[in-house]
Write a protein that binds this DNA or RNA. Sequence first.
DNA 1: TGAAAACTGTGGTCATTGGT
DNA 2: ACCAATGACCACAGTTTTCA
Length: 310
Amino acid sequence: MDNFVREKLLEWNLLDKLKDKFDDEGKVIKASYGKKFLRSKLCDLIIKNELKGDFNKRITSDRFRALAIEINDIFLHEPPELYYVSYVRNANGKPKAARGKLWSTYCYLRKTYKQLNLISQPSTSTSKLNTEVEEDCEEHIQWLKNNSLPFPIVIEKWKATTNYRIAQFPESIDHYLNTYKCLRSQTGFLLLENINDLEPELSLRASKYANYKLTSQPIPVIIGESLSNIEGCYVCFNDIRYRVDTPLKAVDLCFKVYHTLNAEYPKECDSVWMFIQTYIYEIKTEYDRKYVATSSLMADIEKLKSEKID
DNA sequence: TGAAAACTGTGGTCATTGGT
DNA sequence: ACCAATGACCACAGTTTTCA
């Protein structure tokens, strides 16, 4: 290692950090400068030293920038941008991730350390069920698959298996309906068999969804010439039609169906259902999407309410 | 035996997600 | 708003296999 490089390394405090390896590998890297420069080896050496002693250590963007500048100071023709470009937003305001050789070496090392179990995987939110509870659930699930009565026991078993069913997370509502017999019963509701205008509309909707590889979601349906002349209200999903007394009850039931089945809201009116969920029912979940329109509507309503009180 | 094809691993970018 | 983290994807170089 020549004096210039040694001085620079001392100045930037890199020599101490790299002394274990740099005498050997550093010589190789230094020798390659001006020929086929071993950039990857250099990055590997630096990042490994940064992570020495703690495989899970985070390197801040400031540190990355400093390291890139240090490299540029030692190896004058190596631009810092080659080694680290921090996060930026483009003209459209879209975020652009950090780049550069140091960055990708860091990512690659972390990937490798994870594969070798040197870094613990971030804990997922799903808590593990113990085997005893799981066995009970299996039994309940089996019962639910074959029985739809008596209703109180259905409710009890349905509640007891909530976590288990969520863990099993079905692909679609079809799966749910086909698996659990109780969902097809009409306890407490009138299920109509012939609804003239409704069926073509629903099948049109289903095919529209199928085009986008989505499954048709539960939907409240109101039949009648106008809102002042309502003939009937339904909640429809798949081939099931629940009749309810009022539009409000249809919305209410539909909302409950979404949550009971862990179904997603229909894409085209997700924000509307999110408003109903957060403002009317005051429910917040970890899966909630935030909408500017929804938030501003809620804020506006709150403002109106407070003005009325004043 | 050497060229071509197939395969594999590394290094890199990008879009997106998630945390603060 | 910022930025770290992640996963999908791609290019490319090196290695191995196939085949004339």
